[in-house]
């Protein structure tokens, strides 16, 4: 996994609330045994109709809206634990997702795949949607190092929270699995005195 660098980009707004992982990637597309290619089916049933034609009006089919940030309504990523949802978002080209809150498992899955979930107040989220509505070319600066999100050169400027360990992992592209493998001796010691009744 390569490290997360600071980005400057435009954003795609999806103001629906409670977007579940079945919408992000429907179960019938989970049959792959690799992590690649899920972007093609991101929001599949919102993007395409049963005849596989693009659905007009869905934001990803609208050429006006582009960028590496997805902005979504509250409780994004609820439902299933499928990491395929994070893989689909990343594979499509999003590096950041902004919402007023995220479902726990999705948030972890995103972080484990180099995607930064940024939680903002409901009011800030509303202002971000308005800014994009007024100008689809609104630029967003995300600095993970400083934990700041700046919209249109200062129109909105906030700091966001991230767990220090996860931040370090993201910046250095560090892998949590390698980290745990490096702890095997300590775990082995724990395991020897641990009893399951």
């Amino acid at each position: 996994m390569s490290g997360f660098t600071n980005i400057q980009t435009t954003a795609v707004p999806l103001p629906m609330e409670d977007i579940d992982t079945d919408q992000i990637i429907p179960a019938r597309f989970l049959k792959s045994t690799s992590k690649l290619g899920f972007g093609e089916n991101l929001f599949r049933d919102w993007r395409y109709n049963a005849a596989h034609e693009k659905i007009d009006g869905f934001i990803l089919n609208n050429e006006t809206y582009k960028g590496e940030i997805l902005v979504a309504g509250r409780n994004f990523g609820c439902g299933s634990s499928r990491e395929h949802a994070a893989w689909a978002i990343g594979d499509y080209g999003f590096k950041v997702v902004i919402s007023s809150f995220f479902a726990d498992i999705f948030k972890n899955n995103a972080l484990n795949n180099g995607i930064l979930p940024i939680t903002v107040d409901q009011e800030v989220l509303h202002r971000i949607f308005t800014a994009i509505e007024e100008n689809p070319k609104t630029t967003f600066d995300v600095s993970l190092t400083h934990q700041t999100l700046t919209v249109e050169g200062g129109k909105i400027h906030i700091t966001f929270d991230i767990d220090p360990f996860k931040k370090e992992c993201l910046i250095n592209g560090m892998d949590t699995i390698d980290y745990l493998i490096s702890k095997r001796a300590v775990i082995e010691k724990f395991q020897q005195q641990h009893i399951v009744y």
Partner: peptide, 21 residues
């Protein structure tokens, strides 16, 4: 429930990294 990266964590170390809820 956990994601696939965490499934790999458990297979590789019998542990997961967690923050107390």
């Amino acid at each position: 429930g956990i994601g696939t990266s965490e499934v790999e964590q458990v297979l590789a170390s019998q542990c997961v990294l967690q923050v107390k809820p």
